[in-house]
Amino acid sequence: MHKQFRRRRMPYGFSFLDTAASGRLQNKIRTTQEILIKDGYERVMPPMLDFPETFEVFENFEYFKVRDHLGEDLSLRNDVTVQVIKGYINEFENIDIKNIKEKKLYYMAPVFRDIQKNYPALREVYQAGAEYIGCESKKAITNLIQLASNILKKVCDLRYEIIIGDIRIYRVLSKYLENQDLPKIIKDKNAPALATLFKEKGLSDKTSNKTSFFLLYAEEKNEWLKNWEELEKNYENEWHKNILKEIKNISKFSLELNDILKEKKLPVYWEPLLFRKVHYYTGFFFEGYTEKISSPILRGGSYDSLVSEYSNINLPASGFSLDISPLIH
């Protein structure tokens, strides 16, 4: 690249925010912060640089690597959750687990992602995040979705919707299908490709198409349950019978959560099969979309084994991150 160009311009995916954009960002941050503090969240500030291993919870790491003067690899953070949990656990070393109570933490910080795309995308994203540690997942997720919805109502001028699901349904499918392309197929909601995997397990074209479609493009709860029960009645082999039963059993948890959130009149809907390329989710999972922005700006869920990964303490944890930068552009 021409030296003059590099001297005068910002790198692709990074923006210099002018006074107006900075003001808009500052307003949204302030509003978000007020809501989080009111709900009992306390601020933490993780470092911008950390060991790359911290961020290997992503399938494609998408992080910027830097090297210090001694040749040690470091990385610009692309996810704050792991840093918060890691930091929180370090605080609690040598403390009796019985003394650990619920903890609500929040952060406001930019994350950096080396996104490989063939069109401009933000590589520096200002994020607000909430981590609810020590609370069982259903209660925590209800609280977090309510909280995220309150924030979105205030900081987002566009309509928004939150989709909820359960990563365990994906795990069941993964166990039964054992296919390395499955993450991409589910991420793309690729119904024809998923149907092909069912066909490989001996199901008819018709049943494969139906099973795949009902998993990826679910209708309202009752309609979905009706369709699923019909599939169960007409199962085609033992393998099919077992997978249908297991998925239905697990879907009860997220369907129940969906009912609770609907009662609270939150703009949510349920999808049986959600998957994102972050490994630490263990159960409920949600994402929020706004109109005119193609990718989700809100991502969250429960990660009940993350605390124990950094300690011998077994504590449930849940949280979300909200991308604020796309809302000011």
């Binding site: 979309y289 109109e291 922005i293 193609s294 989700p296």
Partner: peptide, 15 residues
């Protein structure tokens, strides 16, 4: 093919 955000906001019609 579908735009993910369009699917979310016009789910009923698209489904």
């Amino acid at each position: 093919i579908l735009n993910s955000s369009s699917y979310v906001f016009h789910k009923k019609r698209i489904t």
